[in-house]
């Protein structure tokens, strides 16, 4: 349990079976099924309120599902606290509003969890943090505080912070939705690089260009259900589903 890498190395990275989630009497997820292979890049899209965020937040237990099974890297996500800890160590997450710790420097944001959860020595954690800050192209901001950075820079720090835990899966929950238009590409560029290096990624996003370029599969959700699941070229050009076509015409229409 303690060793952190007791997760399996074979089998799918993630399997979601018949997932149900209720908020009171509102059914946010309706029997969702999704399987993600190692190294696969999934883009999840759909209208607001369709359950995209709820689904990926269930994967690291920021939301508790009510029925169904989630298996992450061979470990089942249930009430076992040990399992939850194990899964959270291996699954990084990037949020819409960055959620950096405002009272710590950029470097401290990146070093905190590796030092405490992975028990890395400080020097090690700092070296890793600087390496990932380099990777997201803001090594010079290491000693600044989050409030002193632009939105795009903050989001790149958030990506570096998640990567410092050296996770096997990365979840992105609308990472560019809170950014000014000119900052979106700097964040997407980092995500494209990450994808090209073979990271398993599940991204909730409305950036259809990114989906076309990077995704192995595009998952379209509506009303808490997965309506369609297809490779991007098929999804964007030859969708047979009425709801998908309507959504695409709204997103791509202008």
């Amino acid at each position: 349990m303690i060793s952190g890498n007791s997760t399996q190395t074979a089998g799918p990275a993630l399997r979601i079976e018949n997932l149900d989630k209720y908020y009171g009497t509102f059914r946010a997820l309706r029997s969702v099924n999704l399987s993600v292979e190692r190294g696969e890049k999934i883009v999840v899209c759909g209208p607001s309120g369709s359950g995209k965020s709820t689904m990926i937040r269930c994967i690291n237990r920021l939301e508790q599902h009510n029925a169904g099974r989630i298996t992450v890297l061979g470990t089942e996500l249930n009430d076992d606290v040990g399992n939850i800890d194990e899964i959270r160590r291996e699954v990084g997450m990037v949020f819409q509003h960055f959620n950096l710790f405002p009272h710590m420097t950029v470097l401290e944001n990146c070093m905190l969890s590796p030092m405490i959860v992975r028990r890395k020595p400080r020097a090690d954690a700092e070296a890793t943090a600087r390496r990932y800050l380099e990777k997201v192209r803001i090594p010079e901001q290491a000693m600044k505080f989050p409030g002193q950075l632009s939105g795009g820079q903050q989001q790149r720090v958030a990506i570096a912070r998640a990567l410092c835990m050296q996770p096997q899966i990365m979840l992105f929950d609308e990472p560019t939705s809170a950014l000014d238009p000119e900052m979106i590409s700097e964040v997407l560029d980092v995500m494209v690089t990450l994808a090209s290096e073979g990271m398993t990624m599940i991204c909730v996003t409305h950036e259809m260009g990114f989906a076309r370029r990077v995704a192995d599969r595009v998952v379209f959700m509506d009303g808490g259900e997965i309506v369609e699941e297809a490779p991007p070229e098929e999804f964007f050009t030859a969708s047979r589903n009425e709801r998908t076509r309507q959504f695409l015409s709204q997103v791509l229409g202008h």
């Binding site: 690291n60 920021l62 959270r88 699954v91 990084g92 949020f95 959620n99 710790f101 905190l112 835990m165």
Partner: peptide
């Protein structure tokens, strides 16, 4: 903010 707490949890703390 709830977000900061969620971020910390997602990092395995």
């Amino acid at each position: 903010g709830k977000g900061q707490m969620e971020a910390a949890l997602s990092l395995g703390l």
